[in-house]
Design a protein around this nucleic acid. Structure first.
Lengths: 154, 154
DNA sequence: TTCTTTACTTGACTGGTTCAAGAAAAGCGC
DNA sequence: GCGCTTTTCTTGAACCAGTCAAGTAAAGAA
């Protein structure tokens, strides 16, 4: 599931991106921490490379996103998050209580809900679905504090 | 479509909210400017009441949202927006080019896509769909600048 | 190894949103 | 209407994710 350093290097070269220590570390952090926010990624990267600046991580994440290596998601009420699963049109479910995020595959057929009943003349090319509800942990405890935690616990 | 001042007052009283001039103005602004962001609402309110503080508008919008009078939406890459259409499970289409937002009714049946193929043990109670594409205007001009404008042009 | 290009560091800054304390107004009972 | 209590609004500061800008360092090509 999680590639090796050599594989990360190939991923970068295939995307015509330069191979640097910060980039390998960021790519590894995104693969090992699904749906992590930028701050978590910075912390993970600094386990290996303590001197990496936050700006470098922001730059690298943006470069990876526009190269299609990773995906940038932004659940309502949350800061930006990143994931390594790309190109398969999956969606997300967000826990109302703790903010945990899980992947959800398409419900109906290959591209569900892509046909809106009334498109107002828009040319629609993509539909993203965000499910909301309670994760197994929060559903178990009846009424804990309702405030979402900052950390995802996927 | 757009209620009168008296009707706004009834809406507030029915929701057990105090009736004040700022609140009437904010409610009117949300009804008259669908999908407006907070700043646009502040500007609209100040047409009537030039002295209203931004903080009051933030407070009022939050009070209305938790009372269910209006709905708070947060399209990826955009600031918070508000709309008066509540309780009918509709979705939104966002123009990639200019950021315009339009309402879209449910595509399939009453609550489409609510059945995920694999729910990871989550208790799902809502699905929100964000369609992406080009609005009629932007689809007409082949290649304008791709940067979204700040203002919605709905 | 040298050179050019791209990436990274440093430090300041922006803008939407929130916090906190006090003044003003709404709505209740009289 | 009149005062009293509670909620709302004003004022002003603060927060924080993310961005900008200038200069240094490193990658990769020749």
């Amino acid at each position: 599931m999680v590639p090796s350093t050599t594989e990360y290097e190939s991923l970068l070269r295939d995307a015509e991106l330069r191979v640097t220590r910060p980039r390998l570390a960021v790519l590894g952090a995104v693969y090992e921490n699904p749906h992590a926010d930028t701050n978590s990624i910075i912390e993970a990267v600094r386990q290996d490379l303590p001197e990496v600046s936050h700006q470098a991580v922001y730059d690298v994440l943006r470069a990876f996103t526009s190269a299609g290596l990773i995906r940038h998601i932004q659940p309502p009420g949350s800061v930006a998050r990143y994931e390594s699963r790309v190109g398969d049109n999956h969606h997300h479910i967000v826990c109302r209580s703790c903010g945990a995020i899980a992947d959800v595959d398409c419900a109906v057929g290959h591209a569900p809900c892509l046909t809106a009943s009334e498109d107002h003349g828009y040319v629609i090319d993509e539909a993203e679905v965000v499910y909301r509800g309670l994760c197994p942990d929060c559903a178990a405890k009846p009424n804990p504090d309702q405030s979402p935690r900052k950390e995802s616990r996927v």
